[in-house]
C-alpha cells in the first residue's frame, strides 16, 4: 500500500515535470526570435553605459588637469611681473573662447515642445528642431550676444547643433525639450531681436511651440566642458 502511494506520487510529479518542460520548450520556440533582439539590445545598452562612464571619467580628468594648470600658472605669475600680464591676457582669451564661467545681464529664452492637441497634419511642426535652435542662436548672436548656452551647453566656435532622433545633440551631448537658452549681452537689443514681429519666435509661436523670453540680470553661463583641439591648422606667415 505504501509502495502504491509512492508510485502515484512519483507519477504526479512526473506529470508536473513533463508538463512544465513542454510548456518551457514551446515558450522558448515562440520567443526565440524576440530573445535574440532583446539580447542584442541589452548588450548595446551595456556598451553605451560603459562609454558614458568613460566619457564622464575623462571629463573629470580634464577638469582636474585644468585646475592644476591654473594653479601652476598662478604660481608662476607670482614670481614674475611679466607673467602676470600674460596671465591676464590668457584669462581674457579663455573668456573669449568660452572656456570660463561667466555672469552678466541678458535674457533667458525657454523653448519647449508644444503640448497642444495634434490638430495639424504634420506632428513635426509641434516639436522644437535643431534648425529652430540654430536660428535662435543666430538671432541672438546677430543682436550682439557675448555668451550663449543651451541647457548649459556653451556655444563656442566649434559647436555644432544636430538632430539625434528624439533629442538634439549640442557639442556631442544630448539635450532635450525644454531648451533653456541663456544669452549675455545688451538686454534691450537681445529681447527686441527675439520678440520682434515677424521674427523667429513669431514663427515658432505660429507652430504652437512654447516660447518664453525673460530679461534677467546676473545670468550664470557655464564654461565649455569639452576640449578645443586643433591638429591641422597653423598660423600663416
Amino acid at each position: 500500500m505504501k509502495n502504491k502511494n509512492a508510485y502515484i506520487a512519483i507519477a504526479i510529479v512526473c506529470v508536473i515535470l513533463t508538463a512544465a518542460i513542454t510548456v518551457q520548450i514551446r515558450t522558448m520556440k515562440e520567443e526565440n526570435s524576440a530573445v535574440s533582439i532583446i539580447g542584442a539590445n541589452s548588450e548595446l545598452k551595456d556598451s553605451l553605459l560603459e562609454w558614458k562612464e568613460k566619457s564622464e571619467n575623462a571629463e573629470k580628468d580634464l577638469d582636474k588637469s585644468l585646475k592644476e594648470l591654473e594653479k601652476i600658472r598662478q604660481a608662476s605669475a607670482t614670481n614674475n611681473n611679466n607673467a602676470e600680464e600674460k596671465q591676464n591676457e590668457l584669462k581674457k582669451y579663455n573668456q573669449l573662447l568660452g572656456l570660463t564661467d561667466v555672469t552678466g545681464d541678458g535674457i533667458i529664452l525657454t523653448v519647449s515642445d508644444s503640448n497642444a492637441e495634434s490638430t495639424s497634419i504634420d506632428l513635426s511642426n509641434l516639436l522644437v528642431h535643431d534648425t529652430d535652435l540654430r536660428n535662435l542662436i543666430n538671432e541672438l548672436a546677430n543682436a550682439g550676444a557675448e555668451a550663449i548656452s543651451i541647457n548649459d551647453e556653451r556655444i563656442v566656435s566649434t559647436t555644432c547643433i544636430t538632430c539625434a532622433g528624439n533629442v538634439i545633440q549640442i557639442n556631442g551631448n544630448k539635450v532635450g525639450s525644454p531648451f533653456v537658452i541663456k544669452a549675455i549681452g545688451n538686454q534691450e537689443s537681445l529681447y527686441g531681436a527675439i520678440t520682434r514681429p515677424g521674427g523667429y519666435t513669431y514663427m515658432l509661436k505660429a507652430r504652437a511651440v512654447q516660447v518664453e523670453a525673460k530679461k534677467t540680470s546676473n545670468i550664470q553661463i557655464t564654461k565649455y566642458t569639452g576640449a578645443l583641439t586643433q591638429k591641422f591648422i597653423e598660423t600663416s606667415k
Binding site: 508510485y7 507519477a11 512526473c14 506529470v15 513533463t18 510548456v23 518551457q24 515558450t27 520567443e31
Partner: peptide
C-alpha cells in the same frame, strides 16, 4: 515504477500542449 513514470510523462506532455505558453520573463523561473 516504470509504468508509473511513463504514464505520468505521457499525461504531462498532453497537458503541456494544452496549456498556453508563458511570458518570457517567467520562463527562467519555470
Amino acid at each position: 515504477m516504470g509504468i508509473a513514470i511513463v504514464v505520468g510523462c505521457i499525461l504531462g506532455v498532453l497537458i503541456g500542449f494544452i496549456t498556453p505558453t508563458i511570458p518570457y520573463t517567467v520562463s527562467q523561473y519555470l
